[in-house]
Computed example of a mutant assay.
Amino acid sequence: MTIFSSLPVSQQVVAESGHRFDANRHWAASLTLGFGSHPTNNSNTRITRMNHARHYGPLRVQRPFYPEGRAGCCHVYLLHPPGGLVSGDALKVEVNVAENAHTLLTTPSANKLYKADSNDVAWSQNTILKVADGAILEWLPQETLAFDGSIGVQNFNIDLAQHAKCIGWEILCLGRPASDLPFVKGHIEQRFQLSQNDRPLWLERQALDPNHRRFSGKWGQGGTTVHATLWTVGLDDPNEAIMALREQLPATNQWAVTFRRGVLLLRYLGHERNQVWDLFQQARNILRPLLTGHQATTPRIWLT
């Protein structure tokens, strides 16, 4: 039975579905994936299989792909049919990569962070990545588009074993400049925590608020609309990797690379989604052979 109240439509509670439309609205969805390395009929080779997949709400995966051969990296596409987050959405993705497995996770399209409702209810997005000894994880989602007025928090927690390897990126585009809809209000917070053997290596909190001086100040974001970070852990020779990036990537003042506490970070601040996308793909082409011993393979979904 659906119950209607005298409150405004935005504040009514729809009891039948269990969904709230007031300041306490909360729509959860979760996805837990597990990958393991398994022997094949050929005793000399192993295959990475997705051996666990559990979901709640509108989060799914397509079947695994093996564009690098059955003994190569397992490619999986994460699907969120709604296409974006609205007020009250709480998405959680947890990935566990077992010993000696190798998987690549990406998305078929951009993620969208929509404008908050009249109650300014926030959304949340939690990503937990766990990689065991000898395992490799490539976390390569397409960009996130934040609409003007969006309010929420993104949490990234990366937990690596001593001999685990990981390469990943996050690309955040603020507003829709092509439609003359800049990001002039709202608040988005990004939190990164990368640990190895329970020892924190990279802790970061970035608050994006157009009303704060840091947002437009040259000492902060400088008014840029595209913020992106690429990370890599597990390189045998970080100095070689940094030199290769500096020599082969386009020479601009919009990106910089550092290496501290075992983590290589490539940062981008600019205004062009296509520019950072091309930059990060070039960087991955350089880093992946150094990290895994294999040339970079482009996920087919990026070409559609």
Score class of each variant (00 low, 15 high):
269 L>K: 01
284 R>I: 08
251 A>M: 05
240 E>D: 14
283 A>R: 03
289 P>T: 08
254 Q>M: 11
291 L>H: 01
249 L>A: 10
265 L>T: 06
259 F>L: 02
252 T>E: 03
275 Q>D: 08
256 A>V: 11
265 L>K: 02
253 N>W: 03
271 H>W: 07
275 Q>C: 15
272 E>C: 15
273 R>W: 05
249 L>G: 04
272 E>F: 05
257 V>H: 06
239 N>D: 15
260 R>Q: 14
292 T>R: 12
275 Q>I: 11
248 Q>R: 12
304 T>N: 10
250 P>F: 09
298 T>D: 13
296 A>E: 09
254 Q>T: 14
257 V>C: 06
293 G>I: 06
245 L>H: 04
266 L>H: 02
280 F>A: 05
286 I>H: 06
272 E>M: 07
262 G>I: 00
277 W>P: 00
302 W>M: 03
264 L>V: 05
291 L>W: 01
239 N>H: 15
273 R>K: 13
289 P>Y: 06
269 L>G: 01
295 Q>K: 07
286 I>V: 14
271 H>I: 08
286 I>P: 02
278 D>Y: 12
253 N>S: 05
251 A>E: 11
248 Q>T: 13
271 H>D: 14
275 Q>Y: 03
294 H>A: 13
273 R>L: 13
297 T>K: 12
268 Y>N: 04
288 R>K: 12
256 A>G: 15
269 L>C: 02
300 R>Y: 04
239 N>M: 11
275 Q>F: 11
255 W>A: 03
301 I>Y: 09
257 V>R: 02
303 L>C: 03
245 L>W: 08
252 T>Y: 12
303 L>V: 05
267 R>S: 06
239 N>T: 14
287 L>D: 01
274 N>Y: 05
286 I>Y: 10
278 D>M: 08
303 L>E: 11
276 V>Q: 00
284 R>P: 00
271 H>G: 05
263 V>Y: 00
243 M>H: 12
273 R>P: 00
300 R>K: 09
241 A>H: 10
288 R>P: 06
273 R>H: 07
271 H>A: 02
271 H>M: 02
275 Q>W: 01
288 R>G: 04
278 D>Q: 15
